[in-house]
Design a binder for these strands. Structure first.
Lengths: 224, 224
DNA sequence: ACCTGAACACCGTTCAAGT
DNA sequence: ACCTGAACACCGTTCAAGT
């Protein structure tokens, strides 16, 4: 643990100043897909210990690699977090698509999607926060992130197009509708993982179900 | 700017080691309500420069006070952020109450509240993120924070009770309804300040209006 | 009681050097 | 090409001392 400890540094002043080279080399290099390994280690740390524990040192240590090895694969910590967020959107996308298709699409499908969305957030709260947190820096203009986010939203749009075709949703701009639906599930998810709901003795998943039901009524075609 | 700069520190070693006392004292102490001043300086920095710029040093400097003076008034940085969040909930509470009452309550009132909520988030994005961000630490169990958050939610509950009484909302558990409505506006607000909506060329406030309208339909009593 | 300045134990990032 | 270890410029926090 080489840290800036002035006390011990001063002691060292007695011995000749250490030159900037020739330190014992590590047993062996990592080699292999270090980028992927770093990404997965970051996700693991996040899931187990939260965002504060996610330091470049901790990630490096877990792989037996120096903390600056990361800079060969990511431009900085923000880039690592951006990659973590992209990976999160891919996982969310898969979860939504699976829920939608396994439930046979339609009304049941969108209910399943709503539950799957909130479940994902509850099961990976830190990962979810990194995806949407925005308190910390994260390169919002990164193409990979934008693409992964858009792909996840696309499942929603697809389901709404089907609901409209089946006469279960108002025939209006589907992207506005999708943004609205997304906002609802996102809002429920955020309140759920912040504990704002549990603190009132309410249940997050129950709220998710309620929300999707009211949502269906809300976007249903007007009764003539 | 006294920072741990080893280079200049080593130069100083030529001169006798500085003892741990007797430094030129500051012109004068702050005196007055330093706690309040610190809180307001923190809010100002947040609004103007974002969360990364909010360091104890920057806040202290702005008031001409040492960085550790803060510890007389807050147990740590998390406590300062918690106070900032509480203040945010009070401001939000006022904005919602004003919108609700000025619009004459009822349907128009809740539409005004929805817009006021999203407007607050758009106008104070960093303050809003601290209130809900949850990426950074913030003492969620703080009584003041809990109370301020509950008070803001209370306006919503109140409006829903009225809507129910007027036959404009389903007669069901009002707290579940309130959580749902809160999730919706919160979701819209988060997507809005993250730029997720603007990037699609859509308008955040328009989405807020759309959302509240669909919300009204969603929670309206079932047609017999 | 309130505040200061130095010390301390962490950070992320850079860079000359090693393989 | 890939990685290392030391240096560096910041952080938040603690504490003996000053008023």
């Amino acid at each position: 643990m080489a840290l800036v400890n002035i006390g011990s540094y001063i002691e060292d002043m007695a011995t000749p100043r250490p030159s900037r080279l020739a330190r014992k080399p590590r047993a062996q290099y990592h080699h292999g897909d270090l980028r992927r390994a770093l990404l997965q280690a970051a996700v693991r740390t996040l899931q187990k210990q939260g965002l504060d524990a996610l330091t470049l040192r901790s990630v490096g240590d877990e792989l037996g690699v120096s903390r600056s090895a990361l800079y060969r694969h990511f431009s900085d910590k923000a880039a690592l977090l951006t990659a973590v967020a992209s990976e999160g959107f891919r996982l969310l996308h898969d979860a939504l698509r699976t829920a939608w298709e396994h439930a046979g699409k339609g009304r049941a499908g969108s209910l399943a999607m709503g539950e799957a969305y909130v479940s994902f957030a509850l099961e990976h709260p830190w990962h979810y926060r990194v995806m949407f947190g925005s308190g910390f820096d994260l390169d919002a203009s990164d193409p990979e992130l934008r693409q992964a986010g858009a792909a996840a939203l696309e499942v929603l749009v697809e389901s709404l197009v089907e609901l409209q075709a089946a006469g279960l949703a108002r025939q209006e701009d589907v992207r506005t509708q999708a943004n609205f639906v997304w906002a609802v599930v996102h809002g429920v998810a955020m309140l759920a993982i912040d504990g704002s709901i549990e603190h009132q003795g309410a249940d997050a998943k129950a709220l998710a179900r309620y929300a999707v039901e009211r949502l269906h009524t809300g976007i249903a075609p007007a009764v003539p």
